[in-house]
Design a protein around this nucleic acid. Structure first.
Lengths: 111, 111
DNA sequence: CGGCATCCGAGAGGATACTG
DNA sequence: CAGTATCCTCTCGGATGCCG
């Protein structure tokens, strides 16, 4: 979250789901609640620092719910709120687009 | 563009449309081709440097077409390719989501 | 297991001035 | 008008180590 006074809906959405990881985390939680470790395995390449950082942000956004189970060993589950689910749904076409054009995208020269 | 070997479609899509500006630029070109100056005015807050930088990238991605009209004064028009249009279409639900929840998003405490 | 603290480099992105 | 060039700041994100 960076600014206020969005000029359009996409502007606001990008602000919420922006960055390298939030969309992927949201995606991973689509099917079921996951524990921290499970989530880490579900989002390949993410560091613990980024995962917890993004989760905290998404918690304050109201996208994600954090449930602590007081056990030994500790157990913390993350799940999507209704708000999170609605955003996830809005991301489906984008995911489909990416899947469809993945070959093309991978073939783009990088620099 | 950062990596190869995407784990899912959303991963690839985020890689293409990621960053602060690309989605907004794409959005601005949705209706009609725009000149550099028009585009700058259509994406409030963007600097000339970022605009040209993002446009160049999107050109190499094949999302945007750059047409130079040799005139005095110079005239350069940017338009979406079919590929760009398809991505734009995939972004519509996200834009709708953002519009719908804009009040909520603006009300989120920022850090 | 589920974190937090700290350090660090790279690059994203901004401001300003200049050019064909 | 449509860019370039330069400089600068600030955040993103990785690596590592420690804690209840």
């Amino acid at each position: 979250m960076k600014k206020q006074g969005y000029t359009c809906g996409l502007d606001a959405a990008v602000d919420v789901v922006g960055g390298k990881w939030k969309a992927l985390i949201l995606w991973a939680l689509h099917y079921a609640p996951l524990r921290f470790g499970e989530l880490k395995r579900s989002v390949p390449g993410i560091s613990e620092k980024m995962l917890i950082q993004q989760l905290r942000e998404m918690e304050t956004y109201g996208l994600v719910h954090r449930e602590v189970h007081h056990q030994v060993p500790p157990k913390v589950e993350y799940s999507l709120t209704e708000f999170g689910h609605s955003l996830n749904t809005a991301l489906i076409p984008l995911g489909d687009w990416g899947e469809k054009h993945m070959r093309t995208i991978e073939a783009i020269p990088r620099g």
